Simulated assay, not measured.
Amino acid sequence: MISFNYETDFKLDNEAKVSEWISNTILSENRKTGEINYIFCDDDYLHKLNVEFLEHDTLTDIISFDYSVGKELHGDIYISVERVTDNAKDFGVNLSVELHRVIIHGVLHYCGYKDKTDDDANLMRSKENYYLTALN
């Protein structure tokens, strides 16, 4: 089950459509949907988590905590709406596109994709782009 939670003044449009898209992405990656919680928050909220749990004193757009068991995906995905909004402006893309990219990015991490090396980041970006087209 995919749930959306809000710790800031933001509401995701079309929760049912986005949830179905996420579930279809998970199935396409030969995984099963477990309990996945999206928590939309602001920079301060996510910064505190980043410092407390990852010891990173930086702003970020997403932090995901993976509790998956085998091929069944479980976890909490925290997204800073402030950071995503700024990134959308910086990248010259629509906020909706950048938000959906970040939403699917977290699930792709649960599917085993990494983004620390250039090759891994390129594969991750390719997967993001592929699944973004499936949403439209």
Results as ranks from 00 to 15, higher is better:
I2F: 06
I2P: 01
F4H: 04
Y6C: 04
T8F: 00
T8I: 07
D9R: 06
D9N: 09
L12A: 00
L12V: 01
D13F: 03
E15A: 09
A16S: 10
V18D: 02
S19Q: 07
S19H: 03
S19I: 03
E20I: 09
W21P: 05
W21Y: 13
W21H: 13
I22F: 05
I22R: 04
S23M: 05
S23E: 05
S23Y: 02
T25F: 07
T25S: 04
T25H: 01
L27C: 03
L27M: 11
S28F: 03
E29V: 05
N30G: 04
K32V: 01
K32N: 13
T33A: 08
E35W: 06
E35V: 03
E35K: 12
Y38N: 01
Y38C: 02
Y38L: 03
I39F: 02
F40A: 00
D42L: 00
D42N: 14
D42Q: 06
D43S: 13
D44Q: 13
Y45E: 12
L46H: 00
H47C: 08
H47R: 13
L49V: 02
V51Y: 05
V51G: 04
L54Y: 06
E55I: 05
E55S: 14
E55N: 14
L59R: 04
L59P: 00
T60A: 15
I62W: 06
S64R: 09
S64V: 11
F65E: 06
S68F: 02
V69N: 10
G70L: 10
K71E: 10
E72I: 14
L73R: 00
H74M: 02
H74V: 00
H74Q: 10
H74P: 06
D76R: 12
I77A: 02
I77E: 04
S80L: 03
S80N: 09
V81E: 04
V81Q: 03
V81P: 02
T85A: 12
D86L: 15
D86C: 12
K89C: 01
K89N: 08
K89G: 01
D90H: 14
F91Q: 15
F91D: 15
F91K: 14
F91C: 14
L95R: 12
L95V: 10
S96G: 12
V97W: 13
R101E: 13
R101W: 08
I103R: 04
I104S: 12
I104T: 15
H105S: 07
G106L: 09
V107R: 06
L108E: 14
L108K: 07
L108V: 15
H109L: 11
C111S: 14
G112H: 06
Y113W: 07
K114E: 14
D115Q: 07
T117W: 06
T117M: 02
D118Q: 04
D119L: 08
D119I: 09
D120Q: 15
D120H: 08
D120A: 09
N122H: 11
L123Q: 11
L123C: 09
M124P: 04
M124L: 15
M124N: 02
R125M: 11
K127R: 11
N129Q: 07
Y130F: 14
Y130L: 15
Y131P: 04
T133Y: 12
L135D: 01
N136P: 09
